[in-house]
Structure formats: C-alpha cells, structure tokens
C-alpha cells in the first residue's frame, strides 16, 4: 500500500531541521551527505523496512546498513524519530561519552546494525548476512546505503561480483549519488559514470531515480523487491546539501558544521518549506 507521501515529505523537512541542529550542537559532522540521504532513509524506515523499533533485535527484521558512515547524522535522526532511542540523545552526537559516535558503531545504539566510516565495506557485510540467511532460510532483506564517491573503493566492486555470483536477491544496494565528494565533484576527482550501466554489467538490476522524490523512492524499493535471482541497486540521484540553498551542490559543506547564524538561516528555509507543504496539503 502506498504511504501518505505528503506526510513523508513533511517528515523529511522535520528530519532535516533536527539533523542540522544536531550537527550544529556537535560542532562537527557531515551535513552535505546527510541532507542528501533524508528521503532515501525516510522511504526505508517509514515504508519499506520490516522492522520494529520496540524490538531492535528481532531476528527476522530487515536491515539497513549505512556503508557511507559519515551520513550517520541522518541515520541517527531517523532512528530517534522512529522511536529507537530518545530524541534528546541526539544532542550528544560526537561528545564524549556518547552512543552517537562520529561514525556508526554497531550495537552502540538500537538500530545501528553495522560499524562504518572506512568506506567501501558495507556491501561485503550485506553479502555475508545474505549468505547466512540463505542457509538459515530467513527471508529478510538487506539494504546497503553507499555514497557515489564511495564507489571508487575497489572493495565495493569485489562485493558487487560476489552478490551477483551468489545470486543474492535479498541484497538491495542504494547509491546516494549526490555527485560530490570531499574535494569536489565526483566526475572531476575520479569519474564513476555510467553508474547504472556499470551495475548492470556486474549482473545487478539497476533502477535510477530522483532520490528526493519520495514517490519515486518508494516505487523503486517496491520494484527492487520483485526482482528474483539477482541483487538490485537503486541509484538515487540526489543533491548534496539538499534543502538548504547555501549548502546545495557545494562540497565545502561535506564535513563542516553550520555556525549559529548559518543554522538560523537554514532553519528559516526549512520553515518556509514546511509552510509550503502544509499549504499544498490543504
């Protein structure tokens, strides 16, 4: 059943607001690649994932593995809003001692399924989980969220061959293709296009979408689930810094926290977006 898309759109604005506050409070973090992730994660946690925040250890739950670990402010915010832990705890991001590590630490918080922060490793772990699940006849799905710059890591393609070779159709990769990495545009640092063709050549079912259009996001997740016998990848074309005019498409916002005045401007923009959505919903 299709979710209430307008509700998800409004939620995405709320998540961006809380996430930016969280990064600003921490004084460091990665806003650009977190903002680009919001619809991707919203579509998973409020629609596609079979999960239960009250039972984070439920053995049959679907898994969301955040391989691009620097996007964890988005994941933490999503988990808190989904009820995995109290929202107040977001204020402890990156502050000793905290469960909200600068990059995710498996088991530190309910809902954090994998440690990451050294890029390129998540898909291998997703495959390992899928191989184990096959032996155990467990029918869950494993989503692995990667960055586009991350795809420059050779291990990703080692793993992509493994998923294909073993026909791991429970594995669904999601690429947050925001087009920017730390030192500039991906296509200038090391071009990785054509992305969909690359994944298809590796034996994957590739779906390319606008990663900020929540309708396309949930449709892509639905389509991926129908594919049998091969892994799927959703290439979500996104905007780094999405939602904040002065952060969008600016790699300078890869790893810098907003200062108080910048945060205020950003929140104002988000308020305007929320008002527009509310007006639209009436």
């Amino acid at each position: 059943m299709m979710p209430d898309l307008n509700a998800l759109r409004r939620l995405a604005v709320d998540l961006r607001r809380d996430m930016l506050r969280t990064i600003a409070t921490a004084g460091s973090g990665h806003p650009g690649g977190s903002l680009s992730l919001v619809e991707i994660l919203t579509g998973l946690f409020w629609y596609k994932l079979r999960h239960d925040p009250a039972r984070p250890d439920w053995p049959d739950r679907d898994l969301c593995l955040l391989s691009k670990g620097h996007g964890c402010p988005a994941l933490y915010t999503v988990l808190a809003w989904r009820g995995y832990f109290p929202k107040e705890e977001l204020a402890t991001l990156r502050r000793y001692p905290t469960r909200l590590q600068g990059h995710p630490e498996r088991g530190s918080l309910p809902g954090i399924e994998m440690s990451s922060g050294s890029l390129g490793q998540g898909l291998s772990m997703a495959n390992g989980i899928a191989l184990a699940d096959r032996l155990d006849q467990r029918a869950r799905r494993i989503f692995c969220v990667m960055g586009d710059g991350e795809l420059q890591e050779g291990q990703v393609w080692e793993a992509a061959m493994t998923s294909h070779h073993h026909r791991l159709d429970r594995v669904c990769g999601i690429v947050d293709a925001n087009g920017l990495q730390q030192n500039g545009p991906v296509k200038e640092i090391q071009d990785i296009e054509p992305l969909a063709d690359k994944w298809r050549a590796f034996g994957w079912h590739a779906i390319e979408i606008d990663g900020h259009d929540i309708a396309q996001v949930v449709q892509a997740y639905d389509e991926a689930e129908t594919v049998q016998g091969k892994p799927q990848v959703v290439i979500a074309r996104t905007v780094k810094g999405k939602g904040i005019s002065f952060m969008e498409n600016n790699h300078a916002w890869h790893g810098v926290a907003p200062k108080p005045d910048e945060l205020a401007r950003a929140l104002k923009e988000l308020d305007a977006q929320a008002e527009a959505l509310a007006a639209h919903g009436k």
Binding site: Q121, M125, N127, G128, I129, L135, D136, Q155
Partner: peptide, 24 residues
C-alpha cells in the same frame, strides 16, 4: 557451507564479518 568470493581478500574478510553478524 563453503563460499568462494574470488581473488578478493578485502571482500573475503568483509563477507566473513557479515556471516558472523548473522550468527555464523
């Protein structure tokens, strides 16, 4: 219960980690 991952040691160790995450 045996898996080949090809000549790819990074993936080998990562896949082993995933198997352990799922209880193997």
């Amino acid at each position: 219960r045996f898996f080949s991952v090809g000549i790819a040691e990074q993936d080998l160790v990562g896949t082993a980690a995933g198997l352990a995450m799922a209880g193997k």
